[in-house]
Every structure is written in C-alpha cells, then in structure tokens.
Nucleic acid binder design. Structure first.
Lengths: 226, 226
DNA sequence: TTCATAGTTAAATACAGACTGAACTATTCA
DNA sequence: TGAATAGTTCAGTCTGTATTTAACTATGAA
C-alpha cells in the first residue's frame, strides 16, 4: 500500500502536473493545447503528463472531433487537490490593508462545481442566518423551512438527496478560511445561478462574473451587496 | 496562489517525504531515527527532509532530551494525506479470495487518531444499527438516546462538542471503501478503548491489536465478533 | 487535395534536487 | 571524564525524470 501511495504522491507532486490539476480544479474540461498554454509548456510535454495522469485515472478524456477534453475523473481528485490547497502556509503576520484586501467581489471563484471565495462564504452566511440551512456540530443540514425555500427557489431538494454524491457539506475556503457550501446542494445553487444568468463563467478561469440581474437578485434573496 | 500550490505539491510529492507522511498518518510522533529506519534512508537524508516539511509547517517537532519527536502539525495535513490515499487506483477486477481477503481482524488499522479498517467500519455499523448515531444525507449525528449511551460508556459528549475540531464525521476508508467514524467522537472512542485496554497500539505501526478483554467487550457492546 | 491545427511518439539532452561522506554539536549514560 | 547515541550541516556527486528536438498521425477547413 505504501508504495502505491508514494506513486500517487510523486505523480501529483511534479510542478507541471500540479499546475494541470490546479487548472482543472474548477471542474471544467480543457483541451490539451489549452492546458499547455495555461501551464506554459510545450504540447509534447503536456501530452506526456496528461498521459501519466490519465493512466493513474486522476483525469479522464473525452474526444470531440480533433480535440480532446481533459477533466478530473471524479470528485475525490478535486477533494484531494482542495485538501492540499488547504496546506498552503498561511501568510505570516498578514496585516492586510482593508482597502485592497481582495479584488472586487464581482469576480468570484468557483471551487470545482460550487461557489467559493468571498461570495461563497457570504451565501453560506445568508442561508445560515435565514435558517434555511442549519449548522450543528460542524455539519450542515437543511431545515424544514429550508426545503420549502429551496423548492420556491427552483431547486428540488428531494431530487438532490437521491443522488449518490455527498448532498451537502461545509467546504473550507482557502482564501477566506471559512466555510462555504459544497456537495450537490452547492452545485445546484451555482447551476441555478448560471442558468438564470445571475453569474457567468469567465473563459479559461476559475472565476465567475456577476451580471446586473445577479446583483439585484443576490441582494433580494441573500442580502448580499455586491 | 498557483505557485504556492505547486510548492506544496512538490514538497509532498517526493518519495522519501511521502513515505514520512505515510508513516505519520496514524497520528503518533516519531523520532528522526525511527523515521529513518521506517523510510529506509540515512539519518542525514531524513534530517534534510524533515527540515523541509517543518519549514512548510506540515509537521512539527517537540524536543525531549536528545530526541526530537515529529508529528503532523495539524489535522489538515492528515486529511490531505488521507484524501490522496483515496486516489490510489483501485485494483483492477480484484477477484478476492474470500478466505484470505484480509489479515486477521485482530490486527486493525488506525487512521490518524481513530479506528479504521474492518473494525472501524463494523463499529460504525453497530452504532448506526443501535441508533446511537444516525445518518442523514451523508452526515452523522448523535441521537438523544445516543448521548445517554455515550455518557454510560464513559464519554462526555457535551465535552466533545466544546472542542474546536470537527465533532463527528464519516471518514471514507480506503481499504473497505465504506465509512467509519472520525472527528473528536472517533478519537474519544479509540482513546477510551485504549485506556480500558480493549486494544493496544503496536509499536512502530498503524495497527492496533485487540486484547482478550477487548474481544469480550466488543461483542457485548457492539456485537462485533473478532 | 492541400494546408493548418490538434495531438502523439521516440530518442537525445539537461538539470534540479536527492543522496553520500565527512565533520560537527548536544545529550545521556557509565 | 570519556564513550555512545541523536541529530545536523555542508560540499560534492549522481541520477531520475522533465524537457527539447524532430518526425509522425488524425481531423477539419479552404
């Protein structure tokens, strides 16, 4: 078992491959060339590295015409990468200047398939404050009023519960060091916001941008001032 | 941020350091020499690697006389390592022979600070069946009868809830691919079993062995046949 | 058909970073 | 006090593996 672990660790622990994983972290699929650009290396090199990640089943491919789209092959990979992100040493004394603490909130990160960053945390806060979600002993659950709220919001909670994947879980955010909402509920929330055009994905980035409509609705539903 | 991630990844992704982390995974502290033996390398080399892990704050030291004890500096490290263990490719078709599926259950693994492996899963199953712990939407919580049960068992749940660390959470076991009980409740259970001499840690190993007393008590409390 | 783009494969090279050897300090024990 | 054990530091060597150079196949567009 140990040597298998070492194999996996050394696989992840190459600078180029780590960069690939980093770029795939938001859950989208990229072509080999896109990754080569993002990682700043040659096509041949990317090809070799993708081959290794593929063989270990950390990523999977889908062929579309002459393109090949690469993405994480499962959630565990994203979780492992996120867990490693959490190990990044915290900035020393970090006396942040309040004024330029972060880039404008309009640009917010996604974490695999759910909202993260400042807005992810704000969303979690709001849902907690509205008692739509309640926290008990470090885990999140949905209150009975919450179920009603979600259905009015256009998300079928019963549906989500049927899914095999983890339903709802707190996800520690590395930039905010606070919890936001992961699991299928987190994914459905993001999904809904995208289809309603509250937010849009920015090409080739983990960020999303908030639309004018999103701005209003976020205020209305969650009292989040963008 | 990306380059910091890459630094962390390459730090973990060296064979020797990965082996060190593997050995520290059960939560105990080891001296530099012990680790050198376990990892099968020289003292100088271990010293260098420990230095690097230390600098990144993945591990911490405690000096005791002329010995230095190394351990994970926080839970996040253990979680990240566990998450990586989960990425180990599953055995192909794996037609396991029932007879020799696993080494005798008397030898069971610990995972950082709680019971894992076959017995960890059996324990979780029993607590769930007895409705001491209930599962809802992928998370565990303790029932009101459960709280009573724990206090009779000699574990003060209110105490555990006060702790900052995660109280109770399912932890996917890589060998069983099923959940066992992690978090402070998991730790307290293991702790209680050790102080009551149901199980004993085996020197230099992640395994514990079940005592005669433990055998009886596990049957009595949890209907686990060892 | 021909050209451009996407991606792969193979051999040759280069280099970062692990490891070794030797000399050092610090603590315990006799 | 000396001898043994625990651990560190540093300069030099060595090697695994990433990268480059080059030649290849496959798909789509003109």
């Amino acid at each position: 078992m140990e040597d298998q672990f070492i194999k996996t660790a050394t696989l992840i622990g190459d600078a180029t491959r780590a960069s690939i994983l980093w770029n795939l972290l938001d859950g989208r699929a990229f072509t080999a060339t896109e990754l080569a650009v993002a990682v700043e290396t040659s096509a041949q090199n990317i090809s070799m590295h993708l081959g290794k990640l593929l063989e270990a089943d950390l990523i999977s491919v889908e062929k579309q015409g002459r393109h090949k789209y690469y993405r994480f092959s499962n959630k565990e990979v994203a979780y492992a990468v996120e867990a490693m992100v959490n190990l990044i040493p915290k900035p020393k004394v970090a006396v942040k200047k309040k004024s330029e603490e972060y880039p404008p909130i309009k640009y917010c990160r996604t974490c695999y398939d759910h909202l993260a960053g400042k807005i992810g945390v704000a969303l979690a806060d709001s849902l907690l404050e509205q008692k739509i979600i309640i926290e008990a002993n470090g885990v999140f659950e949905i209150s009975s009023e919450g179920i009603k709220w979600f259905s009015e919001f256009g998300i079928n909670i019963e549906e989500a519960q049927k899914q095999k994947r983890i339903f709802l879980k707190p996800c520690l955010d590395w930039s905010e060091r606070r919890n936001h909402i992961a699991g299928s509920v987190g994914a459905m929330l993001l999904n809904k916001m995208i289809t309603e055009d509250w937010v849009r994905r920015i090409k080739d980035s983990r960020a999303v941008t908030i639309t004018g409509k999103g701005e209003k609705e976020l205020l209305r539903y969650f009292k989040i001032v963008v």
